[in-house]
Amino acid sequence: MAEPLLRVENLNVNFHTAQRVNHAVRGISFSIGREKVGIVGESGSGKSLTGRSVLKLTAKAAKVTADRMSFDGIDLLEASERQMRTIRGNRISMIMQDPKFSLNPLMRVGHQIMEAYRLHHRATVKIAREKALAMLEAVHIRNPDRVFQLLPHEVSGGMGQRIMIAMMLIPEPDLIIADEPTSALDVTVRRQVLSILDELITRRNAGLMFISHDLNLVADFCDRVLVMYAGRIMEDLPASELHNAKHPYTQALLESLPRIDRPVDMLQIPTRDAAWLNGPVLKSGEWV
């Protein structure tokens, strides 16, 4: 892991409106290797926007600037839209929050997976079909032949998310951006989906950017965690160290979660310090 898969330096995202400029992501730098990196924070902290900026999928009104944004030697800032199309899905893919809204409602799920494959590989229908069935099996769908023929409204949430994972992983990408992939799922299904994702990523040695607001989940699932607040990375630390976090914001977030093993009378409500907006942040345990 000499050169990380993705390297971002000083990323800024601005939204220009008639009255003012909304600075949503403010000068963040990070890198992702072939590992699982979690990005946590509250809504509006800029975590999803960071993921979208990497794929250049931000809205037209957003102005994305960075000193450097490179993926496996490719400069994403300079890349043309044509070049981006060969990267999206093929090299970097994205798993969205809710399968209900990200699958085509009029197309059988098997054909959607085939389409994802044939878009990036020259393959006959027959081969693509075999690949898609194998992929459905890889995401632990018991009866791939039957599921192949289903329409998105006929599958459950957990099954839909597994189909999404199959679709996103079939072109064999190097980096996967998962934007709250399990927030819409039940606890019991969540565990299943995550273990499938974990298994496939480990097997293919890919990198994962896991965007979530669930701190406990990230602490256990990921290797490294970035904690975001108001468009900045407050703390960058190994996931196993999350519960020993030093930044007051991370500590406050952890304190605000109800816990089964440690009953409390009243939960701590995070108080926000204006100094965090521009104050020092933690990088691997050091204040910078």
């Binding site: 606890v187 019991t188 969540r190 406990n216 989940l217 602490a219 196993s240 519960h243 089964i260 093993d261």
Partner: peptide
Amino acid sequence: RNFLAASIGYKP
């Protein structure tokens, strides 16, 4: 028991 394990399983 499974439900509990799924809910607590991600706690370190």
